[in-house]
């Protein structure tokens, strides 16, 4: 299968035009396979999770029943981003599958909403939240190695419980950052190709080759996002992950879930704010450290 559709431009140059739309199905099949394999793995292979004992100084009674996790602003961002992302996926790919509607209009509007919401998120998480809480750290990597060794029956120390975000979430965030920035970066330039009230049209801004590569990068990141979003939704509705999903709706998770999955030393609750919604400025490692 060809990955890219090529055309010959008026100057006789062979240039890329779009991705091959068959890649949509590759992404869907990849996501399906991932879900099936993951579900089988959880059901039949992975045993109960073993963590090292918590050594947190915080007494259990200090931990509120509702542990604040996502501030209202962070939750609003997440759901606005999710709505625009789903709109972008639907408007981009349904027409390629033969469903006819005026997709470009809805697509670029959703693209602008996504861009603004991501811009807000970058500023919010850099200056008002714990920026580093979503990036993998040394303990995450060490624990991942321990977990792998133990899975294969090797001796290794029990991994610690997670900080605010499990390593899988951090990796997911990393990949979606790359794909998201790719569609936004290229999408903003592609708006110069079409008529919008935001930019004046200039289809000659780049050479045919540069434009072609831009369309291809936009498309590749776009189909990547099909798989990423399907997998994200699947994870969000898995029973063992529901408390995390609910925390993105209500802003908190239960004390039991917090103690079961998280290490109070790695995700330190700010005692002063523990009973308040997680909206105030957080120090590194403290509760109000939304980054997704």
């Amino acid at each position: 299968m060809r990955l890219i559709q090529w055309v010959t431009d008026p100057w006789g140059q062979h240039v890329p035009a779009h991705i091959a739309w068959g890649l949509i199905w590759v992404a869907v099949i990849f996501a399906m396979l991932f879900m099936i394999l993951h579900a089988l793995y959880v059901a039949f292979v992975s045993g109960p999770r073993a963590f090292a004992k918590n050594t947190a100084p915080m007494a259990e009674s200090d931990i509120p029943e509702h542990v604040p996790r996502h501030s209202l602003a962070a939750r609003l961002f997440h759901w606005i981003m999710a709505a625009s992302m789903l709109t972008l996926l639907v408007t981009a790919f349904l027409p390629k599958m033969g469903v006819r509607f005026n997709w470009v209009l809805y697509h670029w509007i959703a693209g602008v909403v996504l861009t603004i919401s991501i811009l807000f998120h970058v500023i919010h998480s850099s200056f008002f939240l714990d920026f580093w809480s979503i990036w993998p750290d040394r303990i995450d990597l060490r624990d991942a190695i321990s977990r792998s060794l133990r899975f294969f029956g090797k001796r290794a120390p029990a991994p610690r419980r997670f900080a605010k975000y499990p390593l899988e979430n951090k990796f997911y965030h990393l990949v979606i950052v790359i794909a998201g920035l790719a569609v936004i970066g290229t999408g903003l330039f592609m708006m110069k190709r079409i008529e919008t009230p935001i930019f004046s049209r200039n289809p000659y801004l780049f050479s045919d080759m540069t434009w072609g590569l831009m369309y291809v990068l936009h498309g590749l990141a776009g189909v990547g996002l099909i798989a990423l979003v399907i997998v994200h939704i699947y994870m969000g509705v898995r029973p063992e992950k529901l408390p995390i999903t609910k925390s993105m709706i209500f802003g908190w998770m239960s004390r039991d879930f917090y103690l079961e999955e998280h290490d109070p030393e790695r995700w330190v609750l700010d005692k002063r704010n523990a009973d308040k919604p997680a909206s105030s400025r957080g120090k590194r490692g403290y509760a109000p450290s939304d980054a997704d």
Binding site: V7, D9, P10, A17, H18, R193, P203, Y204, W211, G212
Partner: peptide, 16 residues
């Protein structure tokens, strides 16, 4: 035979 939007490309040659 120019590879414009209508022909499956990604540009309109007339609207420039």
């Amino acid at each position: 035979g120019w590879p414009c939007y209508r022909a499956g490309g990604n540009i309109c040659y007339a609207d420039t």
